[in-house]
Structures are given as structure tokens and as C-alpha cells.
């Protein structure tokens, strides 16, 4: 089993990047309403609130890789996933698709790039149109994009459903007639129907029961082997990410704090936040342990702390951490971390 695991990751270091992010940021601003604008004109000290959801992120995903993106709520992991999937434009920075800037592609190429990247969402209840039958949900896109002829669409849909582990006999049913796990399979069949090479899974198993979650995780691994897929797997669950990923990227308040091959992150975490996160993960192997808890709250992304975002909660913070933003630096083979402690040592 370990062979199938190491082979693609070794190849992945050589494979061409499928997507590259360079200094990508995303800002959301809340514009003032009418009353606010009048108040400002009258001299009130009101400003538009700006959230830096993603703040200067560099990320490369190579063909055949499974990259796990981990972070707590509000860290910008979903926003990053949406920008990678091309659903949302970046406010700043460039996103390269196979080495070419997404914004420089012509219409046909841009459509091709979007088609090759598909997304699987967290909530299988909200991401399926309740008024469409399963065969329409799965069959609509491939028919539109000419991947299956009108006469062949039935058998094409059957094949997609079978691949996602669903009985094609159920294709005339509506989404509400399925359980959560089955709906997630419909979402997967829909994504696979347009023959993507890159899947962005945003908390794709978070809403499922443990036994169903295991079924879907196994399905993701099977599909990866069969279809040579590349994944960006976004999750707050370190156990799931550790199980699935070749490489892990940890985010905190819009920034990447650490990035390394999966085994390296779990064996030799470098950033204090990663260490704290790993220490707090409940593990089934651990019995009757003392929980400690990282002190403090996750700060609001509306008003993040200066310098290193983690410094108010970090037990090792010193003066420099409050002033200067640490850069992502190489600390080992393929292992980068953004912490001033690495300079001090």
C-alpha cells in the first residue's frame, strides 16, 4: 500500500505545476450604506471595513499531488479554494494555470481551464438543485460542453454514477430522496462528469458521519488512482488531511504559516501554531490525556494583530514578532515556515 502512496508524491515533485499562486490576496470590503455615507459627509469618522481574507499567498500544486489545506474558521482557506477553482477573482497577485496567467487567457482557453478544475462543496444539501433529478444534475454539464452526445447521455451518466458508487437505477430520483453520504456522491459524480483533472474539495466530508466519511475518503483515494486526479483538499480536520495528503499547507488568518510534505509536518512541525494545532487534535490512540488548550481566541480578520498574526497567542513571541511580518522560509527539504524563531536559532 505504501508504494501507491509514495510513487505519486515522488513523481509530483517533478511533475509540472497545474496551478501556481503568486502573492495572491483577496479583500472583501463592506461599503458604507446611505446613512453611513451621509454621516461621513457630516464629519463622522467612518471608514469602509476591509477584511483581508487571503493575504499574499504563494502556493504551487503539481500534477498528481494531493495538497491538504488546513486552518481554523476564518483563516481564508475556503476563499483560497474558490480563487484556485476560478469561482472568485483575486484582488491582487497572479494565478497561473499550467504556467499561464488566468487573466491573460482568451475566452475558449479560460473556459477550458475552468472545466478542468471542479469543486466539491461541504454541504451536500445546499449544493444540489432540489428541483432537478440526479440524471439532470450530473448530465447537464457534459451535454452542454459536448462530452457526450444526446443519444449517449444516459449511458454516460450511468457510468459517472457507478464510478461515484451510486446505483444508476436511482438516477430518476430527486436529491431529497438521498442520504447525506449519497448526496455527496452525487456531487462527486457531477464534478467528474466534465472530466476534470483537478478537484478542489472544500470540507467535503465535514458534514458526514464517521462511517460515511470513511466511505467517501476511500472513494477519493480510489478516484485518484483511477483517473490520475490532482486534489486541493481543504479541511479543518487534521486527521483527514494527514490520511489523504502528500503535502500540507497550514493557514492562519489569511496567511500560510507552514508548508511541508505531510509526514514532515506531522513528525517535525516547525511553526508554533502548527505545533499547538497538532497538540490539540484529539486522537483515538490517546487515552485519558490532559488537554491544555492554546490560550486566547482566534482574532477577528477585520482587525488582525500586527506583525506575525499568531503572536498574541504564541508562547515564544518576542518583540520582533509584534512588528515584522515573518516570511515563509525554507527550513528543510520542501518544508517552509513563517516564524522569526528560525532566524534567532
Amino acid at each position: 500500500m505504501s508504494e501507491t502512496l509514495t510513487a505519486p508524491s515522488a513523481a509530483a515533485t517533478l511533475a509540472e505545476p497545474i496551478i501556481e499562486l503568486r502573492g495572491v490576496s483577496k479583500r472583501f470590503s463592506k461599503t458604507l450604506d446611505f446613512a453611513g455615507r451621509i454621516a461621513r459627509r457630516l464629519g463622522a469618522n467612518l471608514r469602509e471595513e476591509v477584511v483581508h481574507a487571503v493575504d499574499g499567498v504563494d502556493l504551487t500544486i503539481r500534477k498528481g499531488e494531493v495538497v491538504g489545506l488546513v486552518g481554523e474558521s476564518g483563516c481564508g482557506k475556503s476563499t483560497l479554494g474558490r480563487m484556485v477553482a476560478g469561482i472568485m477573482p483575486a484582488s491582487e497577485g497572479t494565478i497561473l494555470w499550467r504556467g499561464r496567467d488566468l487573466t491573460s487567457l482568451n475566452a475558449a482557453e479560460a473556459r477550458e481551464a475552468k472545466l478542468r478544475t471542479q469543486m466539491i462543496f461541504q454541504d451536500p444539501y445546499a449544493s444540489l438543485n432540489p428541483r432537478l433529478k440526479v440524471q439532470e444534475i450530473v448530465g447537464e454539464a457534459p451535454q452542454f460542453h459536448g462530452m457526450a452526445k444526446r443519444g449517449e447521455i444516459e449511458s454516460y451518466v450511468d457510468e459517472q454514477l457507478r464510478r461515484a458508487g451510486l446505483d444508476p437505477a436511482l438516477k430518476r430520483r430527486y436529491p431529497h430522496q438521498f442520504s447525506g453520504g449519497q448526496r455527496q456522491r452525487i456531487g462527486i459524480a457531477r464534478a467528474l462528469a466534465v472530466q476534470p483533472e483537478f478537484l478542489v474539495c472544500d470540507e467535503a466530508v465535514a458534514a458526514l458521519d464517521v462511517s460515511i466519511q470513511a466511505q467517501i475518503l476511500n472513494l477519493f483515494m480510489k478516484l485518484r488512482r483511477e483517473l490520475d486526479l490532482t486534489y486541493l483538499f481543504i479541511s479543518h480536520d487534521l486527521g483527514v488531511v494527514e490520511h489523504l495528503s502528500d503535502r500540507v499547507v497550514i493557514m492562519y488568518l489569511g496567511r500560510v504559516v507552514e508548508e511541508a510534505p505531510a509526514e514532515e509536518v506531522f513528525r517535525r512541525p516547525n511553526h508554533p501554531y502548527t505545533k499547538a494545532l497538532l497538540a490539540e487534535v484529539p486522537r483515538i490512540e490517546a487515552r485519558k490525556r490532559a488537554f491544555a488548550g492554546v490560550k486566547g481566541e482566534i482574532p477577528s480578520p477585520l482587525n488582525p494583530p500586527s506583525g506575525c498574526h499568531f503572536h498574541p497567542r504564541c508562547p515564544f513571541a518576542f518583540d520582533r514578532c509584534r512588528i515584522e511580518r515573518p516570511a515563509l522560509q525554507q527550513v528543510g527539504a520542501g518544508h517552509r515556515s513563517a516564524c522569526h524563531l528560525n532566524d534567532a536559532a
Binding site: L5, A214, G239, H243
Partner: peptide, 24 residues
């Protein structure tokens, strides 16, 4: 046993999880 096998954990990395077939 099935439930425990379904939980991704350190020593099972990359291997298929032992899943319980069917649903509740």
C-alpha cells in the same frame, strides 16, 4: 470495530479505511 476502523489515524496513513458498508 467498524467505527474505530473508519477514523483516519496516524498509523493508517494512505491506506483505505476499513469502512462499514451501507448506511444507518
Amino acid at each position: 470495530l467498524g467505527l474505530i476502523g473508519s477514523v483516519p489515524s496516524r498509523n493508517k496513513r494512505g491506506e483505505p479505511l476499513r469502512q462499514i458498508p451501507g448506511m444507518t
